[in-house]
Amino acid sequence: MKNILLACSAGMSTSLLVSKMKEAAEEKGMEVNIWAVSQDKAPSEMEKADVLLIGPQMRFMKAKFSKTAEEVGIPLDVIDPVAYGRVDGEAVLNKALELMGE
């Protein structure tokens, strides 16, 4: 089971993206746990995740989250703005899997 964490300003704007990512994973026959949280909750949620993806509107938080991500041993990156804007669940899922070495 892969655990994919998404972080955005309030945890709301990524909820539709989470749904689309789950659909894409289901189509691939993958078991994944994907959830979104606000930027405040992201550091404590990282311990449960295999990867952290940050909403493009929060790219300025990457440096702050990098330290915690390094401590818990997970990769992180900013979600591609085009994939985010298109709510392209498959593209974002593929990016998460790539970061995890899948």
Rank of each mutant, 00 (worst) to 15 (best):
L17V: 04
V32A: 03
D88T: 07
M58P: 03
D80Y: 13
K41S: 13
D88L: 05
L53A: 11
I34H: 01
M58F: 05
M46E: 07
P43D: 08
A42S: 09
S19F: 03
I54E: 11
R86Q: 14
Q57L: 11
M100G: 10
V87G: 03
A69R: 06
G89N: 03
K48W: 00
G85N: 12
D40Q: 13
L17G: 02
M30C: 00
T14N: 06
D77N: 13
K28C: 03
M58Y: 02
G89T: 09
K28P: 12
V92H: 07
S15L: 03
M46C: 08
M100S: 10
S13E: 10
G55E: 11
G29N: 03
E31S: 05
F65W: 07
N94W: 05
M21N: 03
A69H: 09
V82G: 10
K67F: 09
S9L: 06
A96W: 08
L5F: 02
S13L: 00
D77T: 07
C8W: 07
D80I: 10
V82Q: 14
V92M: 09
K95N: 13
R59W: 01
W35G: 04
E23Q: 15
P43E: 09
N33C: 01
A36R: 06
G89L: 04
E45G: 07
M21S: 06
M100T: 14
K28N: 08
G101K: 12
E98M: 09
L93Y: 00
K48H: 05
T14C: 05
R86F: 13
S15H: 03
K62V: 00
K95Q: 15
M61V: 05
